[in-house]
Design a protein around this nucleic acid. Structure first.
Lengths: 328, 328
DNA sequence: TTGTATGCGTTATCAG
DNA sequence: CTGATAACGCATACAA
């Protein structure tokens, strides 16, 4: 900037004003702009951050095993939705990968080091150290879904997992299925636990605990494992609610290997309406999750807090229509 | 830091020394560490960046339509490989999404604003504005794959697309297939063009231009489209080389819809050995791409440059074994 | 071993 | 409208 000021024959203050918009005479402005172009000047963001106390960047944090991030197209869609909103507001979305304990520590520093003004946090569990940091720092944040111990005052955005799971299970039952099982994934997270609750509600007195196979993750391999367990416990199973489309895809694979027809012998429904859902054979009946919209609203809530507004307490739940395809 | 110094009864210089490692007496160190814990002090990274002229962060840039990023598990694996290396060296990987022209502009500022010390760049094409910025800035960078106009002196890391494509096509031909076609994706990029070249080399005089279907992207939908084109031009087709596993998966879908058996009627091979490859039915024979290793080495090359070493000219090519499964 | 002073590149607050 | 000048929070050369 020194060079620019010198080349244009003005002070650094005036240069700063043409960059940030202030009262500057036309002549001075022209001279400075020419100088900027000539010198190839680019403002140093670190210096600007230091004095402005902001970075124009928002973190996007996924607190999930990284391999799952790749599996789950939903997360990607949420991120894209957030980026679109942030981008329009001239904020940089910074995607942080947490892949180890060491990462956690470094990201803690990153978050508290002035690198970002806010954060969108996906897939947090209760007692996550990063969640603690965010609340301690009072960093403007929005959670997608909400860990059980989410502090009051931090907004979250999500869907009604209980209601959606109940609804699709009811529709599956309405097709005449008598022995319906569930592959319940990630019940240590609110989404997983809620989907199981909804399933249970739908079945009421017909609910049988041994027709629920618990698996750790929302992924394809877990789906295969869960399906095998279920069939072993109840060979005459004729309906399955998989906790996600990826899980359902794994289940379909096992059914195919075993020669069971879908939806003939067994009806299968999933959750998410991710690209998986349309590519399985047969295509999946599933719960549509407005992932992009979720990301957009999460980003918007961060922006709002950055604008000084206190978000209304509680969270926002987005609607989740059921999409009926061929698998049930 | 002021608070810490006061609480410990020392000067700020001493506090700085215990943080960064310098000569400090045991007594002072103990007092300061206690004070740090009590106050909950965290160094301000913006200030540190400003004076140190570095950020301990490296950008991971994918110059590809964002929807494709979600489709391509390869890119995710590359990122994870890069993150692992960067993390061990205490660098933060910052994942940047470029989703619009506006993003391009903002990222340009980001790159030149001292936010990152280096960059790993994936899927760059010739004449990409971001590529220009990186070379103009002389930002330590490594390209994964290389755009045609990559400047001398910037290292890249990749695979031998020509040789790999040639090898797998030859093996497909060796199974007795007579009418082999290719679904060539993204020939505007070096990887796409090279795979086509390899295919052509393998077939030699038997190569027929009309048995190559050109599609824009490495994705599922493109695979479906390409397969339809190919069958229309040559209904008796008995072999297909798809430019990626996702493309192959789309092709398989079309073949299934049309009632052609694989590998009975048609042999299909892909490229990448991504998770797709094991989940299609039948599982794909394909070229294994060591994505994680590519990411790791790319990150390593950035780190090396950060360490002041000038990378040897030219790029590094990693081996790509062929994995033979059921589809051909 | 420690305190002090200076500078990193900007923005913002003043007089002028 | 513009030019000085004081922060911003930290690392570091230098003096003590």
């Amino acid at each position: 900037m020194h060079d620019v000021a010198a080349a244009a024959g003005v002070s650094r203050g005036t240069v700063s004003r043409v960059i940030n918009g202030g009262y500057v005479s036309g002549a001075a402005r022209a001279a400075i702009e020419a100088a900027i172009a000539e010198v190839g000047y680019v403002p140093n963001t670190a210096a600007r951050n230091l004095v402005m106390q902001r970075s124009q960047a928002v973190a996007f944090l996924v607190l999930e095993p990284p391999s799952l991030i790749l599996e789950d197209p939903n997360i990607g869609a949420i991120m894209l939705g957030a980026n679109a909103v942030l981008s329009s507001a001239d904020y940089q979305l910074v995607n942080l990968v947490v892949d180890s304990a060491r990462d956690t520590e470094r990201i803690t520093k990153y978050l508290s080091g002035g690198f970002v003004d806010g954060a969108v946090i996906v897939s947090a569990r209760a007692n996550d150290p990063i969640t603690r940091v965010v609340t301690d720092l009072a960093l403007p944040a929005t959670f997608v879904g909400h860990p059980a111990d989410l502090k009051q005052g931090i907004p979250f955005i999500g869907i009604d997992n209980v209601g959606s799971a109940r609804a699709i299970t009811e529709r599956l039952a309405a097709t005449g299925r008598k022995r319906i099982g569930m592959i319940a994934a990630a019940v240590d997270r609110d989404s997983g636990a809620d989907r199981l609750t909804g399933f249970r509600q739908a079945l009421g007195r017909r609910f049988k605990p041994n027709l629920v196979a618990h698996v750790p993750f929302y992924d394809y391999a877990s789906g295969m494992e869960g399906m095998r367990q279920l069939l072993q416990r109840e060979p005459r199973l004729d309906g399955v609610f998989a906790a996600s489309d990826a899980v359902a895809a794994g289940a379909l694979q096992v059914l195919r290997e075993l020669g069971r027809s879908v939806p003939g012998d067994v009806g299968v429904v999933g959750f998410d309406d991710s690209p998986w859902a349309q590519r399985t054979d047969p295509a999946l009946s599933t719960v549509h999750q407005p992932a992009k919209e979720i990301g957009a609203q999460a980003a918007d809530l961060v922006l709002r807090q950055l604008g000084g507004k206190t978000p209304e307490p509680g969270g926002i739940l987005l609607p989740t229509p059921i999409v009926w395809r061929a698998s049930a």
